[in-house]
Simulated scan of single mutants.
Amino acid sequence: MTSLVEFYDQGGEGKHFAEEFVQQAHSGHWETAKDHWTRIVEHYGDSVEELETLPPKKARQEAEQLALALCKTLAQVGKCWVCIVG
C-alpha cells in the first residue's frame, strides 16, 4: 500500500492528496490520517467481493485506487470516511 508519505514525496497530485487528507480532513494530524488511510484501504480490500477473484497484489492495488477516489473526494470538503462512520 502506498503510504501518505510516499504520496507526498511523489509531488504533484500525490502531494496534493496527502496534504488535503492530512491538513483538511485531519487538522494536520499525520498519525490519525495515516491510520485512517490504512483502515480505508483495508476496508475496501475486505469488503469488495470483486477483489476476491484477483491475484493478491492486483486486489491490493484496486483497493487502494478505490480508497484514493473516496478520500480525494471527501478531503476536498474536509471530511474523512473513518471520521464520519466512526
Rank of each mutant, 00 (worst) to 15 (best):
T32N: 07
T53G: 14
P56I: 05
D46G: 06
C83V: 09
P55S: 14
E52G: 11
V48L: 12
E64Y: 06
K57Q: 13
A67Q: 01
A67G: 09
I84R: 09
G12Y: 03
C71T: 04
G86A: 07
A75D: 15
A63C: 07
T73R: 13
D35F: 10
R60G: 05
T73M: 15
Y8D: 13
G86C: 07
E20W: 06
G14A: 04
T53P: 06
A33D: 10
E19T: 13
F7G: 00
A25I: 04
P55H: 11
T38H: 09
Y44I: 01
V85R: 11
Q10R: 07
H16C: 05
W81A: 14
L4D: 00
L51T: 03
T32E: 10
A75C: 09
S27Y: 14
I40D: 00
P56M: 13
L68N: 00
G12F: 06
P55C: 12
T38K: 06
V85T: 11
E62P: 04
D35N: 12
W81K: 10
K72F: 02
P56A: 14
L4A: 00
Q23D: 10
V41A: 01
L51S: 07
E49N: 11
G28L: 09
A69Q: 09
R60L: 06
A18E: 03
W81V: 15
M1P: 05
G28Q: 07
S3W: 03
W30V: 10
C71I: 06
K15F: 07
A18I: 05
R39L: 05
I40M: 02
H43A: 08
E62S: 12
F17E: 00
Q24H: 15
I40R: 01
P55R: 13
L74F: 03
D46H: 10
H26G: 03
Q76R: 10
E50K: 09
T2E: 15
E19W: 04
L68T: 04
K79D: 12
K79M: 15
P56T: 10
V82N: 04
H16G: 08
E64V: 02
E20K: 11
A63P: 03
